[in-house]
Amino acid sequence: MTSLLRLARAVARRLRGLSRRQIAGMIVIVPLAVGVAISSMIGQAAVATGLLALLLTAVLAGVVHLSRRIGGVNRSTQEAVRELRATVDQLQRRVIAAVEKERLAAGDRHQEVTEAMARTERLTGRGAELLLREQSREIEALFQLFQTVTPRAPMPSSAPGSQPTDLLGLVHAARERRPALTVALGCGPAIVWLGYALAETGGRLVAVDHDAGRVSLVRGWLAEHGLGSVEVRQVGVAELVVEGRTVDWYDVEHLDGLSDIDLLLVDGDLAPATPDPLAPALHVLGRRLAMGAAVVVDEEPRVAPRQGGGFGLTSRQRLPGRWTALTQPHSTTVTTPI
Results as ranks from 00 to 15, higher is better:
Ala304Met: 08
Arg93Ser: 14
Pro337Cys: 07
Leu265His: 05
Ala46Glu: 01
Arg109Ala: 07
Arg287Asn: 12
His210Asn: 01
Ala98Ser: 10
Val30Phe: 08
Ser259Asn: 14
Phe143Glu: 01
Gly195Phe: 13
Ala184His: 06
Pro179Glu: 11
Arg322Glu: 09
Tyr250Leu: 06
Leu313Asp: 04
Val88Met: 15
Ala46His: 04
His172Arg: 07
Asp256Ala: 14
Val192Tyr: 02
Leu278Val: 15
Arg20Gln: 06
Thr124Arg: 10
Gly226Ala: 11
Arg119Cys: 13
Ser331Val: 15
Met26Pro: 01
Trp249His: 01
Gly321Met: 04
Gly72His: 12
Arg68Glu: 04
Val295His: 12
Ala37Asn: 00
Leu240Val: 06
Val215Trp: 04
Gly125Ile: 07
Arg85His: 15
Ile261Ser: 09
Ala212Tyr: 09
Pro164His: 03
Met155Phe: 05
Arg214Asn: 06
Ala37Pro: 00
Thr314Leu: 08
Thr120Ala: 14
Val59Asp: 00
Trp249Ser: 00
Glu83Lys: 02
Arg14Ser: 13
Glu239Trp: 07
Arg288Thr: 14
Ala279Leu: 13
Leu55Ala: 01
Gly188Ile: 12
Ala238Val: 12
Arg103Thr: 05
Glu140Trp: 05
Arg306Pro: 08
Ser3Ile: 11
Ala325Tyr: 04
Val64Ile: 11
Leu185Lys: 00
Leu265Met: 10
Met26Asn: 10
Trp221Phe: 08
Ala190Leu: 05
Thr124Tyr: 13
Thr314Cys: 08
Arg137Gln: 12
Leu326Arg: 02
Val206Cys: 09
Gly195Leu: 14
Pro329Lys: 12
Phe311Asp: 10
Arg318His: 12
Ile23Thr: 06
Gln147Arg: 07
Leu15Asp: 11
Ala53Trp: 02
Met41Val: 03
Leu60Val: 03
Gln78Ile: 03
Val206Lys: 03
